[in-house]
């Protein structure tokens, strides 16, 4: 019958119209900011630096400023300057660790190549600021977050990392 396709189409849309009042699968809108600002335990956005001791966040950063992540980062958004101690000798800590999050593409390669489990992916994404450049260049202090925070956002991954670090410690300990 001529017009059957059109009538089929009209029944599909009517079904969707009435269904949107009854079933959640036909009203998939999530209204922000009341909803839709949640992340899963697997989401990634920009990196952050992990520290172990909340009392001395910057001193207990796991990062040793080896600069591997800076070299491997595809868009080259990381800038690291190694710290020097009182005598001018290089120590295993970053004095400057800047990430330009307007350049960072969240690809996670820095996390993969880091040998010291010190940089991990954060899932927080509401990072808008009012200054075009200053607010989007995150420094060491803004990037440093605790291991407890890491457990909160990626629990399974954080447990694996802790196990690996404990195993490494045990191997290194008796030696």
């Amino acid at each position: 019958m001529l017009g059957k396709g059109i009538i089929n189409g009209l029944t599909v849309t009517a079904w969707n119209f009435f269904g949107s009042y009854f079933s959640k699968s036909r009203l998939t809108t999530v209204q922000y900011p009341e909803g839709g600002n949640t992340v899963t335990a697997f989401s990634r956005n920009i990196p952050f630096l992990v520290f172990d001791d909340a009392n001395a966040p910057i001193d207990s950063l796991r990062c040793v400023a080896c600069k591997i992540c800076e070299k491997e980062c595809p868009p080259q958004c990381i800038y690291i300057v190694q710290d020097k101690d009182a005598n001018g000798k290089l120590i295993k800590s970053p004095k400057i660790f800047d990430i330009d999050i307007s350049v960072c593409m969240g690809c996670q390669i820095c996390v993969e190549v880091c040998p010291f489990e010190s940089i991990k992916m954060d899932s927080h994404f509401e990072l808008a600021g009012r200054d075009r450049f200053a607010d989007l260049l995150l420094h060491r202090e803004q990037l440093a977050k605790s291991n407890d925070y890491y457990h909160k956002i990626h629990p399974a991954e954080a447990r694996e990392v802790d196990d690996r670090l404990a195993a490494k410690q045990k191997k290194a300990g008796p030696a």
Binding site: G5, G9, T11
Partner: peptide, 14 residues
Amino acid sequence: DEFEKLLTENEIII
């Protein structure tokens, strides 16, 4: 099935 019902025999699309 729903998608095809909406689109494939639609005279205007044809």
